[in-house]
Nucleic acid binder design. Structure first.
Length: 872
RNA sequence: GCGGGCGUGGUGGAAUGGUAGACACACAGGACUUAAAAUCCUGAGGCCGCAGGCCGUGCGGGUUCGAGUCCCGCCGCCCGUACCA
């Protein structure tokens, strides 16, 4: 019997319209059922969606559709992370207004997402650049300000002296501005900060409670917060070398036990003492300037060659006033961490050792392994960082480092310098306060006013929003808000005199730190409806890229706490479950003229060797490495093209198959075609057997082939449910393949009319289960199949079926039998056989008897329901 | 530099410390066809082979009755590194 091929181009838009007309996916906050909030990280509207989005949203959609079928009231919204630099770059390059560029991109991407058939509640959609959204963000800012969570301080930025603009770290390449090529300078600006460090301990401790977060993300956040228990130690400056008025250098150390191994002090180029010393030392001043040119990026700073410059200043050792140590300015010491000054102990720290060797400073080992000999223990090229015993450390000799730490702490607490204890224990965090000021146009304006008389005045909440002006240009360098005189000019809300608006806008991370809360009541005329927020939050399942493991997730955790303090939500943690998906990667192709897009490449197999050539010119191309899809390498596959030729279901199914969702997936044409064949196969198998299936009611089989069909279906049902719960989509897909393979033969027989009523009923039940299993992944196909069986209501509104426990357990099990850990045979035995029965049966096996050679085995290990190992 | 992760057939991958390679892709053979496509069936980690063995999860060690999985040391790739989002 001939059946028509499944035509996604006709079927998919039809079902999308049905869902939309019936508002199946619009969520009512008051609907019955336990709530379930599934959210994928919202996209930046860069222009078009890419395969990474398809993968991310396909995963979230499986969860949303599955949970809906399980009877939950599901919230699954979508929005746009719409502020940010690319809109300004586009404005400069193409003379298009950032607003226009952004909303056009959103229109394109919304259409693309809709063509994917995602079960999203589009009625709650918003963009962070919508005035309605950023008005509420300004409201939050003012509340935070009032609650003491916001302050201003001096902070450094990368300054491009030619373009007269602040550069992002990624715009600084080898110390030069990306556009101008000019050497980057550092500038100190007064900027706005959120007091995230007030929450350091809480953000750290609460990680333990985030049980449904990947351990790796919790670890990364723990390390990022970087709690350490050390000491503040004040070193007296040697009077003869100290600048006037300077008498001490305060240092933070986690290793006071190594204080007798100290050989130099290193301070940041921005340390006040460095600045004082540089005043009369042009060479030192030049060195400090050079350090500052590296930019503000920590990675650039720390991968740079470790360099220092002597200041001429010396300090006195706390336990020996005669012992003087030189003070260096070093490019690897950060003003932001601790006190901006360290003491270097070369024997116990590789970086300090490299530094000491470079500048000819002494190296005294102070900790050695317990078994080493103090007389011969030397450190030359490799520092010893392990535990052990103290040596060369006077009254600390023989102690463990921990004992020595305590002793130094108590000794230094007794000594005083300038009227204060010379040492104090101190808990320190690596985490820094969150600088949110951006000297850019396309962001949320910070709602404050600067008045010469009143100082910094918050904009009254009733005056919000502070709207971004539309009449701006990018033809001049710098921030358009800064030179917009009429916008800047404003009356002081307190005294009414002429005043100026703040021209900094907020970091776009602020926008994405509370959007998940806004989705719970996007219509509200205040930031949240606390009742709705508390009902929906925390997000049950949040899905996005691992690249957000630290900043976005940590900022959101802080923001939720801040919103709780200011009464907008009632919880601390925004995301109960977190899943980080891998990237979509693709082969790269390169011709004489540069990178070639996969759409223009034909890959052929020549006797096992893959070759690529240009589809039009025929030019031979080099097949390059597999890399993250990016515009620069042109190795992108446009979801539009895939959906147009294969349909959304195929694209979704492929993105869920094969690769574990937390790992990268390689996009290949063969993979898409395989997924597409599966879609066609399911359709064909069901359509060919449609008549006998429609003619019978579903019922589980009791014996023979019918029983086998029902067993296969119920086992798959159980396994797929469990796999989806654990987000093991690739495993769920494998189970579905198995089921389809098992159903193929019976369905073909049914198609030719050669099945008894029992088998027909079992097939009908199995096919309905199959359709429901694929419904979260390939929803359009599932609807088409479901309707073809005569169901009047869509499968997207059907309840998830329940498996019959009797059909998923076997009476007999087959245990592998190992001899000395290597598999040598199998044992089939009753499932409920006792340990003793299993052991007796194993020893009776031929392979075991020939191996034991008549003697009793040394040991028999029976792992119930798993394996048997005989040790001979 | 530092923090985190990953590494298994020709390919993507599967495997609560318990049969390594499920499932799929690609490939080969067969069926159907005038032919092709599509579809269906079969085969397959490598090596030696006659039955049966040996070797195999990036590399080198270790723990264990048993290691892809745990521990130690390397190598390679990826993510983050606070103004990309």
């Amino acid at each position: 019997m001939a059946t028509e091929r499944y035509n996604p181009r006709e079927t998919e838009p039809k079902w999308q319209k049905n869902w939309s007309d019936a508002k199946v996916f619009e969520t009512n906050n008051d609907a019955p059922g336990e709530k379930y909030y599934v959210l994928e990280m919202f996209p930046y509207p860069s222009g078009r969606i890419h395969m990474g989005h398809v993968r991310n949203y396909a995963m979230g959609d499986v969860v949303a559709r599955y949970k809906r079928a399980k009877g939950y009231n599901v919230l699954h919204p979508m929005g746009w992370d719409a502020f940010g630099m690319p809109a300004e770059n586009a404005a400069m390059q193409n003379k298009v207004h950032p607003k226009e560029w952004t909303y056009q991109n959103i229109d394109t991407m919304r259409r693309q997402l809709k063509s994917m058939g995602l079960s999203l509640d589009w009625s709650r959609e918003f963009a962070t650049c919508d005035v309605d959204y950023y008005q509420q963000q300004q409201h939050l800012f003012l509340d935070f300000l009032k609650a003491g969570l916001v302050y201003r301080k001096q902070s450094k930025v990368n300054w491009d002296p030619v373009d007269q603009t602040v550069l992002a770290n990624e715009q600084v390449i080898d110390g030069r501005g990306w556009r101008s090529g000019a050497l980057v300078e550092q500038r100190e600006l007064t900027q706005w900060f959120f007091r995230i460090t007030d929450f350091s301990e809480d953000l750290l401790e609460a990680l333990d409670g985030l049980e449904r977060w990947p351990e790796k993300v919790r670890l990364m956040q723990r390390n990022w917060i970087g709690k350490s228990e050390g000491m503040m130690v004040r070193w007296a400056l040697d009077e003869e070398t100290a600048p006037d008025g300077e008498s001490e250098l305060e240092v933070y150390t986690t290793r006071p036990d190594t204080i007798f191994g100290a050989s130099f002090m290193a301070i940041s180029p921005d340390h006040p003492l460095a600045r004082r010393a540089a005043e009369n030392d042009p060479a030192l001043a030049a060195f400090c300037d050079e350090c500052r040119r590296a930019g503000t990026s920590l990675a650039a700073l720390e991968t740079a060659d470790k360099k220092g410059h002597a200041t001429g200043i010396h300090v006195k050792h706390p336990f020996d006033a005669e012992w003087k140590l030189p003070v260096y300015v070093a490019n690897f010491v950060l003003m932001d961490y601790g006190t901006g000054a360290i003491f270097g102990c070369p024997s116990g720290d590789q970086r300090d050792l490299d530094f000491a060797n470079r500048y000819g400073l002494p190296v005294t080992p102070v900790v050695m392994p317990n078994e080493a000999d103090a007389a011969t223990f030397h450190i030359t090229e490799e520092a010893y960082v392990g535990d052990g015993v103290m040596i060369n450390s006077r009254f600390l000799d023989g102690m463990t480092p921990t004992e020595a730490f305590d002793r130094v702490a108590s000794e230094l607490a007794e000594k005083t310098i300038n009227g204060r204890p010379q040492g104090e224990r101190r808990v320190n965090y690596r985490l820094r306060d969150w600088g949110i000021s951006r000297q850019r146009y396309w962001g949320c304006p910070i709602p404050v006013i600067h008045c010469d008389a009143c100082g910094v005045v918050p904009v009254p909440i009733t005056d919000l929003p502070v709207r971004l002006p539309d009449d701006i240009t990018f033809d001049k360098p710098g921030n358009p808000l800064d030179r917009h005189e009429t916008w800047r000019h404003v009356a002081c809300p307190e005294c009414g005199k002429d005043a100026r608006r703040e021209t900094d806008t907020m970091d776009t991370f602020v926008d994405s730190s509370w959007y998940f809360a806004r989705f719970t009541a996007p219509w509200e005329k205040r930031p949240t409806d606390p009742q709705a927020a508390n009902a929906w939050l925390p997000v049950d399942q949040y899905i996005g890229g691992i690249e957000h493991a630290i900043l976005h997730l940590l900022y959101s955790r802080f923001f939720t706490r801040a919103m709780r303090i200011t009464g907008h939500v009632g919880m601390d943690e925004p995301f109960k479950g977190l899943f980080t998906q891998g990237m979509v990667v693709h082969e790269t192709y390169k011709g004489a003229g540069g990178w070639i897009a996969p759409a223009d490449v034909v890959v052929e197999d020549h006797q096992g060797e893959r070759r690529a050539r240009h589809a039009e010119t025929g030019e031979d191309l080099v097949i390059g490495s597999i890399e993250k899809m990016s515009k620069s390498k042109k190795n992108v596959v446009d979801p539009d093209d895939i959906i147009a030729s294969y349909g959304a279901d195929t694209a979704r199914f492929f993105m869920l198959s094969d690769s574990p969702p937390d790992r990268d997936v390689i996009w290949t044409d063969a993979g898409v075609e395989g997924a597409h064949r599966f879609v066609q196969r399911v359709w064909r198998l069901i359509q060919e057997a449609r008549e006998p299936l429609v003619a019978t009611d579903p019922a589980a089989g009791k014996e023979g082939d019918a029983l086998a069909v029902s067993r296969a279906a119920h086992k798959a049902l159980k396994a797929v449910g469990e796999d989806i719960e654990r987000l093991g989509f690739n495993k769920a897909v494998a189970r579905i393949y198995e089921l389809v393979n098992a159903l193929a033969a019976p369905l073909q027989r049914a198609a030719s009319g050669k099945v008894d009523p029992q088998l027909a009923a079992a097939c009908r039940e199995a096919v309905e289960i199959l359709i429901q299993l694929i419904a979260p992944m390939t929803p359009h196909l599932a609807e088409a199949c479901w309707a073809s069986l005569g169901h009047p209501t869509p499968v997207s509104q059907a309840s998830w079926p329940q498996f019959d426990p009797a059909l998923v357990t076997e009476d007999e099990i087959t245990l592998p039998v190992q001899i000395n850990g290597k598999k040598r045979g199998d044992l089939t035995i009753a499932r409920d056989a006792s340990q003793g029965e299993v052991e007796a049966a194993v020893l009776a096996l031929d392979v075991v008897r020939s191996a034991t050679d008549g003697k009793p085995p040394r040991k028999v290990i029976v792992v119930p329901q798993r394996i048997v190992n005989v040790v001979v």
